[in-house]
């Protein structure tokens, strides 16, 4: 359950304030599949970042799973990101010199789990993301589609209830897009809340979308 009220995020440019998003209010229920849609520069990534606890709002209220995250100390906000959010970045953002396995295990390190527990969880999410066969490859050697599946596995490994994806299909070819959509569908069935920011029209054709949110110059248009 995500609740957003009058959310603003602005940047101070000289004496002016530039609003990346302005006065956004919305709510997303658990298990929903939500699309953030808009042209480049409309504020999709900004809104997504704030929901993911990666960026902080300039004002307004946001609560995720009953946790007020608009004003949390780093220790708590990080724990929130770790437990509640799985992020799939636009450029995958893998740790290029590590193996797929170690990339996927990275979010579990601060959790102080045993190596055995980590191994169990990593293998499980590698399997869901269909990348088990590449577990021991160095990330930089993977193809674009494999990189993304590795990123998906990493987003799943903490068993977060919310998965956010920033422009997930921007760098993929048709075949890989289909694979990706398959995985998303699987996750949707697992009752995960899924938020995708995109300007790719392919998502709008999907029949299991629950909500489409249009952004224009940082403002919500319905």
């Amino acid at each position: 359950m995500i609740e957003i009220k009058n959310l603003n995020r602005y940047y101070q440019v000289g004496k002016e304030r530039f609003y990346a998003i302005r006065d956004i209010s919305l709510s997303i229920k658990k298990g929903e599949f939500v699309l953030f849609h808009g042209v480049s520069g409309s504020g999709k990534t900004t809104l997504l970042s704030i929901i993911a606890g990666v960026d902080r709002p300039s004002s307004g209220m946001i609560s995720v799973n009953n946790e007020l995250i608009s004003k949390l100390p780093d220790q708590h906000l990080s724990r929130f990101r770790n437990r509640e959010i799985g992020i799939i970045f636009q450029h995958y953002n893998l740790l290029e010199s590590l193996t797929v396995y170690d990339n996927v295990s990275a979010p579990l390190i601060p959790e102080r789990l045993s190596l055995k527990e980590i191994d169990k969880r990593v293998k499980k999410s590698l399997k869901i993301a269909n990348i088990s066969h590449k577990a021991n490859s160095i990330a930089s050697t993977l193809s674009g589609g494999e990189k993304q599946r590795c990123a998906i596995a990493r987003a799943l490994v903490t068993d977060a209830s919310i998965i956010v994806c920033d422009e997930p299909t921007a760098n993929l070819d048709r075949a890989n897009i289909d694979i990706f959509l398959d995985i998303l569908k699987k996750l949707h069935k697992l009752n995960k809340t899924i938020i995708v920011s995109t300007h790719d029209p392919i998502f709008q054709k999907l029949d299991y979308i629950d909500q489409i949110i249009h952004l224009e110059d940082g403002v919500l248009v319905s």
């Binding site: 990080s78 724990r79 990101r81 770790n82 740790l95 990275a106 390190i109």
Partner: peptide, 19 residues
């Protein structure tokens, strides 16, 4: 830049400043 980006990624994945 890679080091910085990697730390940014770890932070986004839920590593706190302490970590």
């Amino acid at each position: 830049s890679t080091e910085r980006r990697n730390i940014g990624v770890l932070r986004a994945l839920g590593w706190s400043i302490k970590d």
